[in-house]
Computed example of a mutant assay.
Amino acid sequence: MTTADQLWGTLLLIVVAYEIYILGNVESGGTLSERVRAWLRVHTRPGRALFAIGWTGFTVWLLLHILTE
């Protein structure tokens, strides 16, 4: 296992642990999806459209990046 594997694995574990903690907490608004909605203003039409375009673009890029490298 490389250092990069360990770093990415640790980061993933931290995010998952935090999400589990927040899901168990009664305070709303703390999960990653709730924060992304607030940060990107997806409750508005322009925010929703920009998020959809950005997410689609990122997904296509990532798919091509992984399959063609």
Results as ranks from 00 to 15, higher is better:
Gly57Met: 02
Ala4Glu: 07
Thr68Phe: 13
Gly9Arg: 05
Val26Gln: 13
Gln6Pro: 00
Phe58Lys: 03
Ile66Gly: 00
His43Lys: 14
Ser33Met: 11
Gly57Cys: 09
Thr10His: 11
Trp61Leu: 14
Val36Asp: 02
Thr59Cys: 07
Leu12Gln: 12
Val26Arg: 13
Ile14Gln: 06
Glu69Lys: 11
Ile66Tyr: 09
Trp55His: 10
Trp55Asp: 04
Gly30Pro: 01
Glu34Thr: 13
Asn25Val: 08
Pro46Arg: 14
Glu19Gly: 03
Val36His: 02
Arg35Pro: 00
Trp39Leu: 14
Val42Leu: 11
Met1Phe: 12
Gly24Tyr: 06
Thr3Trp: 02
Leu63Lys: 01
Trp55Ile: 10
Thr59Ser: 15
Tyr18Glu: 12
Val16Met: 12
Ala4Gly: 04
Ile22Asn: 00
Ser33Phe: 11
Thr10Ser: 14
Val16Cys: 10
Gly30Asn: 10
Thr56Gln: 07
Thr56Arg: 02
Arg41Val: 08
Arg45His: 06
Trp39Ile: 12
Arg35Ile: 15
Thr56Cys: 09
Gly47Gln: 03
Val36Leu: 15
Ala17Ile: 07
Leu12Trp: 08
His65Glu: 13
Leu32Tyr: 10
Ala52Asn: 08
Leu63Ser: 10
Ala38Gly: 05
Met1Arg: 07
Trp39Gly: 01
Val26His: 10
Trp8Val: 10
Thr59Arg: 01
Gly29Asn: 10
Arg35Ala: 08
Gly9Thr: 09
Thr2Gly: 01
Ile53Tyr: 07
Leu67Asn: 09
Arg45Lys: 13
Gly30Phe: 08
Arg35Gln: 14
Leu23Gly: 05
Gly57Gln: 03
Leu64Glu: 07
Gln6Tyr: 08
Val26Asp: 14
Phe51Met: 05
Pro46Glu: 06
Leu12Met: 10
Gly29Lys: 04
Arg45Tyr: 08
Gly9Met: 09
Thr59Gly: 04
Thr56Asp: 01
Val15Ser: 04
Leu67Pro: 00
Val26Ser: 14
Glu69Asn: 11
Gly29Trp: 04
Leu12Tyr: 10
Val42Tyr: 00
Thr31Pro: 01
Leu50Cys: 10
Leu7Glu: 07
Arg48Pro: 00
Ile53Arg: 07
Trp55Gly: 01
Phe51Trp: 14
Leu13Ala: 14
Gly9Phe: 03
Ser33Tyr: 05
Ala4Ser: 11
Arg35Asp: 03
Leu50Thr: 04
Met1Ile: 05
Trp61Tyr: 15
Ile20Val: 15
Val36Cys: 09
Gly54Lys: 04
Ala52Gln: 03
Thr3Met: 06
Met1Lys: 07
Leu23Ile: 09
Trp55Gln: 06
Ile22Asp: 01
Ile53His: 02
Gly30Glu: 08
Leu11Ser: 11
Glu19Phe: 03
Gly54Asp: 06
Ile22Thr: 12
Phe51Gly: 01
Ala52Trp: 05
Thr68Pro: 00
Leu40Tyr: 02
Arg45Trp: 14
Leu11Ile: 13
Leu13Tyr: 07
Phe58Ala: 15
Gly57Ala: 13
Thr10Val: 06
Arg48Gln: 13
Thr68Ser: 13
Thr2Asn: 02
Leu63Gln: 06
Thr3Glu: 03
Trp8Ile: 11
Thr3Phe: 08
Pro46Cys: 06
Gly47Asn: 03
Gly9Lys: 04
Glu27Pro: 00
Thr56Ala: 15
Ala4Leu: 15
Arg37Lys: 15
Thr10Ala: 15
Gly9Glu: 03
Thr68Gly: 00
